[in-house]
Structures are given as C-alpha cells and as structure tokens.
Write a protein that binds this DNA or RNA. Structure first.
Lengths: 224, 224
DNA sequence: TTTTTAATTAAACGTTTGTTTAAAATAGGG
DNA sequence: CCCTATTTTAAACAAACGTTTAATTAAAAA
C-alpha cells in the first residue's frame, strides 16, 4: 500500500506494477461505495492510492473502466458464494441458515449495501441491468421458491403470499443494512454479529410462528 | 411555468417575481430528488426553470439555500400530516390504518423515497440530522410504542421484540418503495394503489396472525 | 419628473473535474 | 552495451461547476 513518491520514469522494480493496480482498486472501492460513481473523484482515489491520476488511464482506460473492474473484482466472488448457497433447503431451518449467511455477508462487507443501493436502485451507471440479473434476481428466485414450497406444504401459514412474502424477507434483512446510520440512531441498535443473529431469528419467527426449542445454541433474543 | 426570455433588466411585471421562485423550487425538487444534492447542477435547474442561474443566488443565497428551501417547502407538510396521524390507535386496525396512510403518502409523492434515501441514509448534506430528527425518529417512536403496547396486551405474540418489530414494519413498508425499480423487475409487482393495499394487509397479517379476509375497517381485533 | 429600488441578464472568475500529452527513467532482450 | 518497451510523473487541456460582478431595465417612491 505504501509507495515511494519519486520523479517521473519507470520506478526501480519494487513489487511490480501490479501493486499500483491493486492499490487503485482498493481505493476505488472505498470511494465508489461511499460516494457513488459520479461523486467519487479520480484525483482523490489516486491520492489515496499514492499514485498519479494518469495511472487510472494507463491501467483501466478511464473512470468507468476502473469502476467496472472494481465491481467485478469485489462483487463477483460474493455473488458466486451466494449462488452456491441458493436456499435449497426448505423449512424453518433452511431459511434461517440462508438468512444468517446472507446477513453475515452483508455485515462482513460494509461497502456492499451502499454499493447495492447506488448501483441497483438509482440509475447511476450502465452496469445496472447486469447487476440486477446477477444478484437480485437470483436471490429473490431462491427465496420465492422456498416460501412457495413451504406455503404449499403447510409449514407456512396460508395467508402468506409467495411474492409478497419473499419480498418481505428481503426487506426485513436488507433494510437495516441499507439504513444503517439511521437505524443505529433511531432504534438504538448496533448492527453487528449479535444483531444479525437476533434479526434473522426474529424474521424467521415472524414467518414460521413461535418455536420454543431451537437446536443451534440456545441464545435467546436479548437486548444488545 | 413558462417565462419570456428577454434581455437584461427588470421584466415588465408579469405575475411578479414569486413565479421565478416557484419555478426554481419546482425544478430543484426534480433534480435534487433524482440526482442528490451534489450531483444536481444549478445551471440545469435554472435551465429547466427557464431562469438565469444567478437568480438562485438572488432568491436563495446559494445552492444549499435552494436545497433547504426546497426541503422545507415540500417535506414539512408531509411530516406534519404524519405527525397528526401518529399511530395513536393501537391494535390491528390502528396499525393497518397507519400503514395504509403512510404507504399512500409514499405512493403519491414519488420523489419522497429517493429523497429519504439520499438525505437520511447517505451522508450527503448537513441537513441530515435535522431530517432524521423531524422524520424518521417520530415515525419510529410511534411504531415502537404501538408494537410495545400490543405485545404487552397480548394482542401480538410474545416472541416479537418491540425494537426489531417496529424496525421490521418500517422495513416491510419502506423497502419496496426504495427498491422500486428492482422490485418491479424482479418480483413483477407494479407499485400502485392495489399493491399498497395488499402490502399493508400482508404486513399486518404477518404480525397479528391470520384473520378472515374481510373488508377494511369493520373487523374487531379478535384473537382466534 | 426625477430618483431610488427591485429584478434580471450576460459575462467573467476561480475551482475542480476527467482526460491527454510529452518527457523521463528503469527493465529486459538482443 | 544498446535499443526498445514499460511504467511513471508533471503539466496542460477543455469542460462544467458554484459563484460574483457589472450593466440594464422596469417598477415604485419622491
């Protein structure tokens, strides 16, 4: 991450040019996820990476090239991991497991919710359709299948609509992360690992009704 | 809205200078709600209002002045209306009525969800604290009080946590509006008046359990 | 009528932006 | 050791931004 600032010319090979690429991608993720595409300044990204702004053009062509490279570099592994999970196991435990993993992923990558909102919900960028196709649609399809099966098998109450139900599950899990700054202030909930556990349990209980015994660690819902 | 473009100098009084102010505020709401504060261009706002960019300085001091004026002009009546409602009536019907009104407000002001997200969730602007204090905190306080009362009275199942429950209700209602473009594509749900009705009913049923699919308003909050 | 005040425009100012160019310095193969 | 390709910097570019200024015209006041 730390680079020697010298004059012009090729540097005395210290790690190789790939380090510059990595530093730019890292700084780009910080800026793009917290400020959005247009508002992120190439010059400041380059400054944080301790790199000349012209290197963006050298390695990525232009600003959008850096953005797309950063997207595929950081989001693709997560998408593949979520696809592997895919909520194939139905029932209360299957959903709980899926939600727990999903929420933990969001928790471990704090830039993801912001990026999701900026890329999917607002019209910024042309990568939006691709992003929806590769992310939201797969998650929602998995959820909808699970909810539909459990309503038919009677494990979920019949007044639950598969479309509204799966959308509801997504709302309940995603919204606290999206609205994190407001939620922490207004609801006095720190969004951390215990919160994720309480949130997923609470969500599952809301849909499947109360359950007195659970098999994975008897941590009851306690405040904070 | 239509103004004559002439040379410099005070115009021959046609409606008065207040028309320019109004046109600027109207154009500002369009741009600020769809693009955010920083990304909205004063020059383009002025162009849409068919007004010289310098008029922003004349009437509002600077860009932030226009932004704040636009916020208080458009959001304040909504906040006051929501406060009047305030979810004071507990129970199934009270919540349903509150949610219906709340969602209909979001539906009728399509720029509101975007503005909410940009102003409250992201760190843009310095008006954020004020916005949270005047909007999110009051809604959440009303919801939390309602949920807490109904859990204590036994009308809501005991496994519902007041904080997580009220946050959940907010998530279920707000998220579809925030994520509208993605929701319409992925869940194939048009976000309109019938959807709002189904969404609020579904949300209430999720919390209060199944109830006969009856008409709105004439159902006692009985337990089965 | 004369003077002052209010409203508006065109033009310019100083930044900041993404991008391009030209020069410079090292690496690596011949 | 030379030559070419690679990597880097400083500087400049044109465009867009928020803002300011000076000029100009009509309304209102005297």
């Amino acid at each position: 991450m730390a680079r020697q600032v010298t004059g012009p010319g090729r540097p005395r090979s210290e790690g190789g040019g790939q380090a510059v690429r990595e530093a730019l991608l890292h700084a780009a993720r910080n800026y793009f996820s917290t400020r959005g595409f247009q508002q992120a300044s190439l010059r400041k990204i380059a400054a944080e990476a301790q790199v000349n702004p012209a290197m963006v053009h050298y390695y990525f062509g232009n600003k959008q090239g850096l953005y797309i490279a950063m997207l595929s570099e950081t989001a693709t592994p997560l998408i593949e991991e979520l696809e592997r999970l895919n909520a194939r196991d139905a029932g209360r435990e299957g959903l709980q497991e899926f939600l727990r993993h999903y929420a933990r992923t969001l928790l471990a990558q704090p830039w993801l919710p912001n990026l999701l909102v900026r890329e999917v919900l607002f019209q910024e960028g042309e990568v939006r359709d691709d992003f929806i196709a590769r992310f939201a649609s797969r998650v929602s399809a998995a959820l909808r299948g699970l909810v539909g099966r459990d309503v038919e098998s009677g494990e979920l109450p019949p007044h639950i609509d598969p479309a509204l139900g799966s959308l509801g599950i997504l709302s309940l899990i995603l919204f606290p992360f999206i609205a994190q700054p407001a939620v922490e202030r207004v609801f006095h909930q720190h969004i951390d690992e215990p919160f994720v556990e309480r949130l997923t349990r609470h969500t599952v209980a809301l849909f499947y009704g109360t359950a007195n015994e659970n098999e994975q660690g008897d941590r009851e819902c306690g405040q904070e």
